[in-house]
């Protein structure tokens, strides 16, 4: 599949701070590509350079074979953007905003259809200031899709939304992708990246520290799982160490946490515990996720 976005050795500093330090990646047509990482990792700087909204120090960027800064007008006619730090006039009605933005583009989609699709028909005569967080984000999505763009940029689209609105937003993203668009998004929710993205680039301190499909990133952790349970009486850790696939065991107060891999590890642990007549409750097994990948690669948690 052809590349829609190509970023090569992008660099951008603010004074002494290197916000983006040599980032390179490609985005293929029709995929959802996620830039994930903690706040301040350089996600917004990266996406805004690609959007042509920020000058950068070094590197090459091409989107749809266009230079986002030099071919600015042509570029902006063919992409859609949702920005993190942006707003709309408080005292404008939803339909007025959409109508105004439509007038900037060479072509635009039917406004009624968009309102219907994103559940804002009943809100079309409301002022922007009266909308809820989720409604505002949906309006921003409408603006990003208004010109029927080939590529859509979304910067922290679900930040500040409650879980329900976030889920609804994810569904919309999948629908947009299924309509043949390419999406480049940033997020600091690993769960979101796992759910939505075909491929993710994990960035930290302006560097890409991993780039692959979410499944492969997790698989590279050697299928490690975490098993935990509560015990009532002390017991000898040694009896668990004899099992296959155990990586480490920790006991915190009355909670036992086991890291290990292998298909049967949960079964083995449970069998051993019952054979040894050890009373346990609250048994949990957790699959590794992108948060664990981040922890493994950087040695620090996503949310610090």
């Amino acid at each position: 599949m052809p590349n829609v976005i190509e970023v090569n050795n992008l660099q951008k500093s603010y004074g002494k701070l290197k916000a983006v330090d040599g980032i390179s990646f490609d985005v293929k047509r029709g995929e959802i590509f996620g830039i994930v990482g903690p706040n301040g990792a350089g996600k917004t700087t990266t996406i805004e350079c690609i959007e042509g909204l920020r000058n950068f120090d070094k590197g090459e960027i091409s989107v749809l074979n266009l230079n986002p800064i030099k071919d600015c007008i042509n570029f902006r006619n063919r992409v859609g953007m949702q920005l993190q730090e942006s707003s709309l006039p408080a005292r404008l009605k939803v339909w007025e905003i959409i109508d105004l933005y439509a007038s900037f583009y060479d072509k635009s989609l039917n406004q009624k259809d968009l309102l219907k699709k994103f559940g804002l028909v009943e809100k079309k005569n409301d002022y922007f200031s009266k909308l809820s967080g989720g409604q505002k984000q949906r309006l921003f999505i409408i603006l990003a899709l208004l010109n029927d763009p080939d590529v859509i940029f979304l910067d922290e689209i679900t930040t500040g939304l409650d879980p329900q609105a976030r889920r609804a937003m994810w569904k919309m993203m999948i629908e947009i992708k299924n309509s043949g668009k390419t999406i480049l998004l940033t997020t600091h929710f690993m769960e979101e990246a796992e759910y939505l993205c075909d491929r993710v680039a994990i960035i930290d301190n302006g560097h890409i520290i991993a780039l692959a499909t979410p499944e492969n990133l997790v698989k590279n952790l050697n299928g490690c799982v975490q098993i935990s349970f509560l015990i009532k009486e002390d017991f000898e850790i040694k009896i668990l160490e004899s099992l296959n696939g155990i990586i480490n065991i920790k006991i915190i107060d009355n909670k036992v946490v086991i890291h290990g891999n292998g298909k049967n590890i949960l079964l083995d642990v449970v069998n051993l515990l019952s054979e040894s007549k050890i009373d346990f409750t609250n048994l949990n097994m957790k699959q590794p996720n992108l948060e664990d990948v981040f922890l493994e690669l950087t040695g620090h948690e996503m949310r610090d």
């Binding site: 959007e51 909204l53 600015c72 007008i73 902006r76 006619n77 953007m81 920005l83 730090e85 942006s86 707003s87 709309l88 006039p89 933005y101 900037f104 583009y105 060479d106 603006l143």
Partner: peptide, 17 residues
């Protein structure tokens, strides 16, 4: 204040000159 609120930032993301 339009600039401060990011209203101009959003406008800039369109082909508006």
């Amino acid at each position: 204040s339009d600039r401060e609120k990011g209203i101009l930032h959003r406008l800039r993301a369109t082909p508006l000159r």
